[in-house]
Design a protein around this nucleic acid. Sequence first.
DNA 1: TGCCAGGCTTCAC
DNA 2: GTGAAGCATGGC
Length: 272
Amino acid sequence: MLIPKRNINIEKIAESGQCFRMTKNSDGSYGLIHNGRYLRILTRDDKDAYEFICDKKTYEDVWRRYFDMDTDYGIIEDMADPEDDYLRNAIEYGRGIRILRQDAWEMLISFIISQRKSIPAIRTSIEKICRLCGTRIEGEKEELYAFPTPQQIDALTEEELLTCSVGYRGKYIKAAAQAVVSKEIELEKINECDDMSLKDNLLRIYGVGEKVAGCIMLFGYHRLDAFPVDVWIKRAMDEQYPNGFPHHKYRGCSGIMQQYIFFYIRHTYGRV
DNA sequence: TGCCAGGCTTCAC
DNA sequence: GTGAAGCATGGC
């Protein structure tokens, strides 16, 4: 499947900090795992496109939605205030980033792990957990593992979890798995809630605060008004928006603007 | 080597 | 409701 490069940039998405299991292979291709499926992506400069290594049906059934291909990001980019140079620069810099429609459970655990960790360290931890208790993906030469189910993580002992470099977050991960397995929290059902109620439900989970809830909403529930504020976004807000970010101008897409700013400021400070 | 990382809970006040 | 302490460990 050839996907034109217009409005999608796999390299930027892979390092945008919204997903942790999309990695660059030694041959320059990209690989990602989602819901137990592996997708390899080649860059085809000769066609000005990406080549998704999958059949058309799988693309239509799975990846088209995952990459949010039915949203026109050009329209969203045009919403930026013409006088907001910072945002316009951020968008220009991050053009091609899209908000992936990832799995809510995976986002819950991934962003619990993310607190006070660097992105490379988050990736390392998540990979360890997948190898420790995730299901091996069939039909691939490499050893690839799906993200563990709630039951698989719930079955781990505290000691096993600690081998994944999660540190003090181990108890949060256990509690989250327990809450899901026991149906104390129903991740699919709460998708019926409006944004505010969805956030309230997520905040009930031990180890989930404002920022992590925002990330789960944005990347796991595709709630595009979620605006998670981490140390980087706070830095951008303090420096560029001393009177607060004008959310009212970006109703329905301020989370996307957040993602452009996050990507931009991390590169501005040379941390990537 | 020391500092920082897509923060959270707990506990004063 | 607000503010500060304490937290585990990898990566640069």
